[in-house]
Structures are given as C-alpha cells and as structure tokens.
C-alpha cells in the first residue's frame, strides 16, 4: 500500500533576486546571478508542485572573499594557497573565479582612501566578469566614506553594498538606491531584528528585489547552532507569508571559520585535532554545509578546496 507523505504547503516564497548587470542592462558583467525563488524548506522539492524553467528555485551560490590589501591576520594556510595574488585584488579576483567562485566579495579596509576604494573596485570589475559584492571596513564613518564614491563610480553594475546594520544603513541604502545597486542587511542572529532592519530599509524606498538578508552566523563550535536555527526560522516565516523575511540569505562561514583557533593555529594544539590543513578546510566546509542546509542562498568562503566541496554538495542537493 503506498504511503501518503505529509506535505508542507506554504503560502509564501523567497524573492528571486538578481546580482550584476550585463552591458545590455547597463553594466559590464559577463555573468549575472539570480538567487532565491524557493517555495519550500531547503531542497524539499517534493513539497511544491513541480516547478521548472523560470519558476524553478535558483540554487545557492558561492562567493569568494578577497581584500583590497593583503590581510596580515589571515591564516597562513590561506596565504599559502592564494600566494602573491593576495597583494593584488585584481589578480586575486581572477584566481577566485578560476577556483569556482560564482561571485566575488571585495572587502575594503580602513587603510583605503575613497580614491583607492574606487580604483580597487574598478580593477576587480575589469579583472573578472563575475558579479561583485563590496563590503566597507565595518566602521560606520569609514564605510560611508568609501561606499558612496564606489557606488557612484559603478552606477548600474548592480553590485551588492554592505554591510548595512541597524546603526549604519541609511547612507549605504540611499547611495545603493540612487545608483541601482543592492544592499546586504545584517542583524545579529535574531528573527525580529532581521525583520526590523528589512522594514527600515524598505521604508526608505529600496525595492524589495534589491535586499539581501544576512542573519549573522557563528563558526562550527563557536555558535553555529544559533545562526542555523535563526536561518531555519527566517525561512519558515518567509514561507508562512511574512513579506519582510522573504529575502535571500547571505552568510559568511569563511570569515567565521577562519577566525577559529582550529583553522588559524597549526602548532601547540591537541593532537586529537589532527592534520591542520585538512582540519581547517573541514571547519569551513562543514560550517558552510550546515548553513546551506538551513537555507543560505549565498555562502562567502575563503579556501578554494572548500569552494569545490560545498559546490559539489549544492549540486547534489539541487538535483535530487
């Protein structure tokens, strides 16, 4: 006797969002990326009527994070794999594309001036045809000082600008709106705070297909369970029809995982931690895999091997 499988029927869905613009659309990107569109909890296609073609949910994508200046505090394992390219963002972006990135995250630093920032962003845009996300250094004033000129100099490229947080979002949102870009909205691991920030950004007039939601995450062993559950709850809220949670999610497992001692330190650690390189890559890969399972649409990674493995996982999940 065939079993009847209980299905979850959802009234809501995740918005489809496109990053990057080709020359036909007013940008210079060779490739653009569309994410979101999900109508079920991650990869549970059996819950939804068969969707195909334009209606099929888009698969999650992988961004590789690069910096405008060679980061001195990154794990030596990353320095080893990226080599000289780390001192040249354009070169680095090219290598990231070769490593399988679907898009690039370029993180600016406090040492950049506005002119530097514009120059670096332009050099990265000409070095690769991939869509681009640009992060300020994470200090409100400096973020605004760098992101506004970057936004103006790249009008029409449909970049993602970030990171908007509750204490600093107005300037970034305003310039993104004026120049046709998107924004990354980050709230600290809380469904209501995410929602609230999305409301504030929408209230400024930002079109809803230009907001990415960053729920914040912790690395494996350092709070991943909080991020994991908040993402599941956000996705459930979205499917239940809460419009202010229906944005695709971007998370930063690379940043978090490579901050941990397990990834950063090779010596003087317990023997039970095993081989350093393999452990560090596992740390990033497993953190990212868990977040892909809980609903991430963009995962930002740092090591090429992790990119390869997480990509493999996504392919298998999407072709079930």
């Amino acid at each position: 006797m065939p079993i009847e499988i209980p299905k979850d029927k959802w009234p809501g869905s995740i918005k489809s969002i496109t990053i990057g613009a080709t020359s036909a659309e007013g940008g210079t990107r060779a490739k653009i990326i569309t994410i979101g569109g999900g109508t079920t909890m991650p990869y549970l296609q059996f819950d939804a009527p068969v969707l195909s073609g334009d209606e099929a949910p888009n698969k999650p994508v992988i961004a590789i994070e690069i910096k405008s200046h060679k980061p001195e505090d990154w794990s030596p394992l990353l320095a080893e794999v990226w080599g000289e390219a780390m001192s040249d963002p354009a070169e680095w972006a090219k290598k990231a594309e070769e490593a399988g990135a679907d898009l690039i995250v370029l993180a600016l630093t406090v040492d950049d001036s506005a002119e530097d920032a514009v120059r670096v962003v332009k050099s990265v845009l000409s070095a690769t045809g991939l869509p681009l996300i640009v992060w300020g250094p994470g200090q409100a004033e400096k973020d605004n000082e760098l992101l506004v000129p970057v936004s103006e100099a790249t009008k029409g490229e449909k970049l993602v600008l970030g990171i908007c947080e509750d204490k600093n979002y107005r300037t970034i949102v305003a310039t993104a709106m004026a120049n046709g870009h998107l924004v990354q909205a980050r709230a600290p691991m809380d469904v209501n705070l995410s929602k609230q920030l999305n409301i504030l950004i929408s209230d400024m007039g930002m079109p809803k297909d230009r907001i990415l939601m960053d729920p914040t995450t912790g690395a494996l062993g350092y709070g991943i369970e909080y991020g994991y559950s908040v993402m599941e709850r956000l996705r459930l809220a979205a499917l239940q029809g809460d419009a202010m949670t229906q944005f695709p999610m971007i998370v930063t497992p690379g940043f978090e995982a490579w901050k941990t001692k397990e990834s950063k330190v090779g010596e003087g650690v317990p023997e039970a931690w095993g081989d350093w390189t393999a452990r560090a890559i596992n740390w990033e890969t497993i953190t990212a895999t868990a977040l892909v399972e809980s609903g991430a649409d963009i995962v930002v990674l740092r090591h090429p091997e992790s990119v390869k493995r997480v990509k493999g996982a996504i392919e298998e999940l999407i072709t079930a």
């Binding site: 062993g221 991943i224 039970a272 931690w273 095993g274 452990r279 497993i286």
Partner: peptide, 13 residues
Amino acid sequence: PEMIYPLLVLREN
C-alpha cells in the same frame, strides 16, 4: 581526527 573532531563538534552544536 581532522574530520572526526569537527563532526563531533557539529553533532554537539
């Protein structure tokens, strides 16, 4: 160990 350790941590989390 380099695989088992992170898996055990994931399980705990």
